[in-house]
């Protein structure tokens, strides 16, 4: 039996393989045809001028993905920027409570202020995947970076390598974890939970391979930018109206 045959057999006979088939059926029901990963490439658009900092996305993410409730583990979070006339920026993560907040009492204390939603950038060229010693984190054909929690060693090299602070060590499994673009929803034709609940439509999820997708339209209508482009990670989370102070 050669390796190829073995793999085929495994996919057919392993219970997990059966589950994939079931999932295919389920997604088939949702959009009329079987889900084909290679024909998608997902990304997200974020319109900063629409974000009202209500944190519905953060709460939905924690509920949907069973993220630990403590404020040290986030797959997505909201930052508030306040830029002073001196050019100095005051930044805070509005989802981290328990820290005494530097209240900017007066609107005149800053020249501009806004919220920025952050999440895993699902880089097309992900440094976390490059450094994982066992290949437990990888990019799917549809462009989502996933973590195999059954094989992750918990060495945390990926956490060190992520320039965006998007990864954390799950305190229950002691393995790395991160945003999956709600992969379990997306393959069924649903939106990621954060996009689903955003009241102002500040988040747009879509398929970069489909000309008709909302994301492609978003990229046509806005001048977009990504975070830390100099690192050449090629993020697939695109920001419109991104301020230069945002890192």
């Amino acid at each position: 039996m050669n390796k190829r045959d073995f793999l085929k057999g495994a996919i057919l006979f392993f219970p997990a393989g059966g589950l994939l088939a079931m999932a295919r059926d389920a997604s088939g029901k949702a959009n009329g045809k079987a889900y084909e990963p290679a024909s998608h490439f997902y990304g997200m658009g974020i319109e900063i001028d629409k974000c009202i900092g209500c944190s519905r996305c953060v709460e939905a993410c924690k509920a949907e993905n069973d993220v630990p409730a403590e404020p040290f583990y986030f797959r997505t979070w909201i930052e508030r920027y306040q830029i002073r006339p001196s050019g100095e920026s005051v930044v805070e993560s509005i989802n981290v409570k328990g820290r005494k907040r530097d209240e900017a009492a007066d609107d005149r204390d800053f020249v501009r202020t806004f919220f920025v939603p952050k999440l895993c950038n699902q880089c097309a060229h992900p440094p976390c995947v490059q450094v994982c010693p066992v290949g437990a984190t990888f990019q799917t054909k549809d462009g989502v970076v996933l973590v195999d929690k059954d094989r992750c060693l918990g060495c945390r090299y990926c956490i060190q390598a992520c320039p965006y602070g998007a990864r954390y060590l799950d305190p229950r499994t002691h393995t790395a974890d991160k945003c999956t673009f709600c992969y379990h929803r997306v393959v069924k034709g649903l939106q990621p939970a954060c996009v689903e609940v955003c009241p102002t439509g500040a988040r747009i999820f879509g398929d970069l391979k489909s000309r008709a997708s909302r994301l492609v339209r978003f990229a046509r209508m806005n001048k977009v930018h990504v975070l830390k482009p100099a690192l050449n990670t090629e993020p697939k989370v695109y920001y419109a109206q991104l301020d230069g102070e945002v890192r």
Binding site: F6, A10, G17, L20, A60, E64, V147, D148, K149, H184
Partner: peptide, 20 residues
């Protein structure tokens, strides 16, 4: 088999419960 591990991970991911 790396591919097999990845397939298994994707399967685990896909069957996670939808809450919204």
């Amino acid at each position: 088999a790396r591919e097999l591990h990845q397939t298994a991970t994707i399967e685990r991911e896909v069957v996670k419960p939808v809450r919204y």
